[in-house]
């Protein structure tokens, strides 16, 4: 596996002179090719600042951000941006085109892709997110979930090496959220896309291979979902929620129900309730 993106002791403050709190403090991590990594933390934990540092909208005061071993600088930022697709939180505020196909083509136009190639790529990208039937739809006739899928298509059209979802599901209804996550999962299977998702939804984070847990601008923990959720009540303290099965486990144990261990999935929990209690 090769490294796609890495943070090396990155510190950033929005007001360095005034001695305000660092929005990001001494954060180090790396994203491997083909990996899905989730960055979690409550609102204000510094996770959105991370996204801005990755795309060169901000530059760190200390430390460095690397994309494939190149340190992000003002000079190479445009090249690097064409390799990273970002989907932001608000579905409306990132829809540039007047119709779906125009929006998908926007990055291609910016990068001077020839017309015939654009037509092909727009088609392909929309097929990948299953929006090919909406070619000429205007944004205000689309649902939030559909707009976010178009935004993903816009990123895919550039054939990026990595997709960043910056709280891309937080303004959506459950249906829209499911649509977007399903789309990302399919893309992972089909083209092995590297994904970094920034979220406060732990159910969403559970889909990832690895979780980076941010608190007060610092990296609090990182590990597989199982490792992170083993932190248990500490997650709750930091404003996050336990996965459903873990919450249920705790409540059952409080009622005196015998259980063999902590469970992350409903299936494990149901099996445990059965074997430890009924099937004796």
């Amino acid at each position: 596996m090769s490294e796609i993106l890495s943070f090396n002791h990155v510190t950033f403050s929005y007001a360095p002179e005034e001695g305000g709190r660092n929005a990001v403090e001494d954060v180090t991590f790396a994203v491997q090719q083909g990996e899905w990594i989730a960055v979690v933390g409550h609102n204000g934990s510094g996770k959105s600042t991370l996204a801005k540092l990755m795309s060169g909208l901000l530059f760190p005061q200390q430390g460095e951000v690397r994309f494939k071993h190149d340190v992000l600088t003002e000079e190479n930022i445009w090249d690097i941006r064409s390799n990273i697709g970002i989907v932001f939180q608000n579905p409306d505020n990132q829809f540039v085109g007047t119709t779906v196909q125009d929006d998908v083509a926007f990055s291609l136009e910016n990068n001077g892709v020839p017309y015939e190639e654009m037509v092909k790529r727009v088609q392909e990208a929309l097929q990948q997110v299953k929006m090919e039937k909406f070619l000429n739809h205007e944004p205000h006739h689309l649902s939030g979930g559909q707009k976010q899928r178009v935004a993903i298509a816009g990123a895919l059209a550039m054939q990026p090496q990595m997709l960043i979802l910056d709280e891309a599901t937080s303004m959506l209804d459950p249906q829209g959220r499911a649509e977007v996550l399903k789309t990302v999962q399919i893309l992972r299977e089909k083209i092995g896309l590297t994904v970094l998702s920034i979220t406060h939804d732990l159910e969403e984070a559970m889909l990832a291979d690895r979780i980076l847990f941010m608190n007060e601008g610092k990296k609090f923990a990182q590990g597989t979902p199982a490792e992170i959720f083993a932190l248990g009540d500490q997650l709750v303290e930091f404003g996050l929620d336990l996965p459903f099965a873990m919450k249920m486990t705790k409540l059952l144990q409080a009622q005196g129900v015998q259980l063999a261990g902590k469970h992350m999935t409903e299936e494990e929990l149901v099996n445990d309730i059965w074997t430890s209690n009924f099937n004796k």
Binding site: H42, M171, D241
Partner: peptide, 10 residues
């Protein structure tokens, strides 16, 4: 609760 984090929602 739209857009709030889990603690805020609860």
């Amino acid at each position: 609760t739209a857009g709030l984090d889990p603690r805020g929602q609860k």
